[in-house]
């Protein structure tokens, strides 16, 4: 092959990454073996907080980057991970596509970091998973210890009276088992993968939806690739983006069935309950606009917020 592209992934390989596997297979096939991917999972080429830098400097060719890990670099991209903005994984992706097509600030921040966006991973909606079924109501969540990460989800838990806890992902299972945690808070696919339904058979949700990691290619690598290969990669990226949304819905439904078959109970939130949540939590999109104002980027942020609100209202 002519091009061996190192792809740094922070996640372990698994059925979650099916669409990315398909993307890889399609590019390899269409370039007739001129491109070959060396995908390294579980942070083998760089941990979650290293990959963006590594891709920008050409140390990895492609990276799966979680915007929330780079709150100071990806000022715009991280907005795709704000809770209570998007009604479903599909809407989050729609918002991403809109932003990267119409609001230059999104692409510009990536240019500065010397990476290009290929596509976004949509995350399945988040559910609480814990031993007790009290997560069904906001009242029931009062004082409950919930595992969170990043900056927005802790704020949201804090706002509704739950207690956000920082627990390493690998410790969740035992923490639930021993009561150090009352609830994990992740998508059903992860609840299945980590088997969190064993210590926490009561699932409540969907509580929120957002975009997951972003697959980027380093600018140096991009400049190295001939035009025809770039075209193939972009075409396949677009297909992967479309397919990812359909896939995540199907896959989460499959996981839901699987965990129910293992004895878990899914308590679905009603629209009223979701509205209650929305009301109790602060307007984090507005907070984001405020933060970016402080960094002199308020205009583009406001434009984004307005556009997204309009998009979600339809």
């Amino acid at each position: 092959q002519e091009f061996r592209l190192n792809w740094g992934h922070y996640l372990a390989n698994g059925p979650f990454l099916e669409v990315e596997d398909e993307f890889i297979a399609a590019v390899e096939e269409r370039t007739e073996g001129r491109v070959e991917f060396n995908v390294v999972y579980s942070g083998g080429l760089g941990a979650g907080d290293e990959l963006l830098t590594l891709a920008g400097r050409g140390a990895v060719d492609i990276a799966s980057v979680v915007p929330g890990y780079y709150a100071n670099q990806l000022l715009f991209a991280k907005a795709l991970q704000i809770p209570f903005v998007f009604g479903s994984p599909g809407e989050a992706i729609e918002a991403a596509e809109y932003a990267y097509d119409n609001i230059p600030a999104f692409k510009e921040e990536l240019d500065q970091l010397r990476v290009r966006r290929l596509f976004h991973q949509p995350l399945g909606s988040y559910y609480f998973a814990g031993p007790s079924d009290e997560c069904q109501t906001l009242d029931g969540l009062q004082g409950k210890k919930v595992r969170t990460f990043g900056s927005d989800i802790p704020k949201m838990m804090d706002a509704v009276g739950a207690v956000p806890q920082s627990v390493p992902a690998g410790d969740q299972y035992e923490a639930l088992e021993r009561g150090t945690l009352d609830y994990a808070f992740v998508n059903i696919g992860n609840i299945e993968a980590y088997r969190l339904y064993e210590p926490g058979p009561n699932l409540c949700g969907p509580a929120l939806s957002m975009a997951g990691h972003m697959v980027v290619v380093g600018e140096r690598t991009w400049q190295r690739l001939p035009e025809d290969i770039r075209t193939i990669i972009m075409e396949e990226a677009e297909k992967a983006q479309q397919r990812y949304v359909e896939w995540v819905d199907a896959s989460e439904a499959g996981s839901a069935e699987a965990v129910e078959a293992e004895g878990a109970t899914i308590h679905a939130y009603t629209d009223e309950q979701l509205a209650q949540w929305d009301e109790a939590a602060p307007d984090m999109l507005a907070q984001w606009v405020e933060e970016l104002e402080g960094r002199g980027k308020g205009e583009a942020a406001q434009e984004t917020a307005d556009a997204w609100r309009e998009l979600m209202a339809d």
Binding site: G68, A71, N72, Q73, S151, K155, R295
Partner: peptide, 11 residues
């Protein structure tokens, strides 16, 4: 240059 800070309940 970017004013790097952690993201959590406190920055």
């Amino acid at each position: 240059q970017i004013g790097e800070a952690t993201s959590g309940l406190v920055s």
